[in-house]
Design a protein around this nucleic acid. Structure first.
Length: 342
DNA sequence: GAGATTTGACCTAG
DNA sequence: CTAGGTCAAATCTC
């Protein structure tokens, strides 16, 4: 029962993040070149969070990923900039009834001679590569990873990653098994750059999304004494590295929105307001909301019933939104700030 | 030297 | 029998 709630909330979170990522993608198309790079940076943060949540969910949510040992295997580089929204998510049960969870994520643009391992998105867990195989009728080989802590903690989580034939920047990531290892949540991040999202309304558990420029930690933490309302103002920063770019602060706010989902849904925050709040040391987007996860549409589980009925359940990204009674349409952005556009 | 990656060989489900 | 998945020795990196 508790797990069902968790799954539901995780799916909600995925929906929210996916939509946020979509909105940022749309938004970036309206921006000038300088700001577009920043917007894409934010978009990539959403995408990374999505991958992390997907990984957590796929591996049973037993553990939250850590930051800090992503080094070696599956996720070197930390240059992940993609999301499940690029394709579809599906649950596959093939051999021996083993349930696998597949998501599509967008990695970095492949460079000639650059190994796949440097392009594979970081999902926050620590993986060790144990094999690579050429797959029939596939352009690119499939890489096999297991949890780094398989040996010393008997963690059985596995994943394999394969680059899409159609779009080499898209990686199909399949997760299998549960993380039982204790990969600790990174503690090196300042909370001022973290997004804390309550996983369960009734509990004190949160997902923490860090929109810092370093690796993103995401994890649960106990906050029995925390006032939730104080941590429900997610923000993410855009820090331009371009010399000469005027530093400004932009706020995206939603006076009427009561959820993060609403804030990023079409007709939500972006249509409610998007303003420049003046100069600051860094370009800064903030999403204000009164309450995260209030209610954005039922929170149905696209996780389904773990494929008990079907061997393959294919779920295009759009259906994630559909499953939550969301309709993603072209937003109507009242971009009033002249600095935003060419 | 320890740990991670590579890669050919081997195993096994379908 | 075949293709996907794993093993393990060789190699690489820090």
């Amino acid at each position: 029962m508790e797990n069902e709630n968790k799954t539901m909330e995780m799916n909600r979170l995925l929906t929210i993040l996916s939509e946020g990522e979509d909105e940022m993608r749309r938004l970036s198309s309206h921006l000038n070149e300088q700001l577009r790079a920043d917007a894409m940076n934010v978009q990539s943060r959403f995408s990374q969070a999505i991958a992390i949540v997907s990984s957590m969910e796929a591996t049973g949510m037993n553990q939250m990923p850590s930051q800090g040992h992503t080094g070696a295997s599956g996720s070197p580089g930390g240059s992940f900039s993609g999301s499940p929204s690029e394709g579809s998510e599906r649950i596959v049960k093939k051999r021996k009834g083993i349930v696998k969870r597949t998501i599509n994520v967008q990695g970095t643009v492949p460079d000639d001679g650059q190994p796949d391992t440097t392009l594979v998105p970081d999902d926050g867990f620590s993986w060790r590569k144990y094999g690579q195989k050429n797959i029939l009728n596939a352009k690119y080989p499939r890489s096999y990873y297991r949890c780094t802590f398989q040996k010393n903690q008997n963690c059985e989580a596995l994943k394999h990653v394969q680059r899409s034939d159609e779009d080499p920047t898209i990686f199909v990531v399949t997760y299998q098994g549960d993380h039982i290892c204790t990969q600790h949540v990174g503690k090196t991040q300042s909370t001022e750059h973290q997004l804390l999202i309550p996983i369960q309304n009734e509990s004190d558990e949160h997902v923490m999304i860090n929109f810092n420029n370093s690796n993103i930690p995401i994890g649960t933490h106990e906050s029995a004494h925390d006032d939730q309302s104080k941590i429900l103002s997610p923000s993410f920063s855009i820090s331009s590295t371009q010399a000469g770019l005027r530093s400004e602060r932009y706020n995206v706010f939603s006076p009427s929105s009561t959820s993060f989902g609403g804030a990023f849904s079409s007709g939500g925050a972006f249509s409610s307001g998007f303003v420049s709040s003046g100069a600051s040391d860094s370009n800064y987007f903030s999403v204000f909301q009164s309450q995260f996860g209030a209610d954005f549409g039922g929170g149905s589980s696209f996780h389904g019933s773990e494929s008990e009925l079907n061997d393959v359940i294919s779920l295009p990204h759009s259906s994630i939104s559909a499953a939550n009674d969301f309709t993603v349409e072209q937003p109507t952005f009242p971009f009033d700030s002249p600095e935003l556009f060419k």
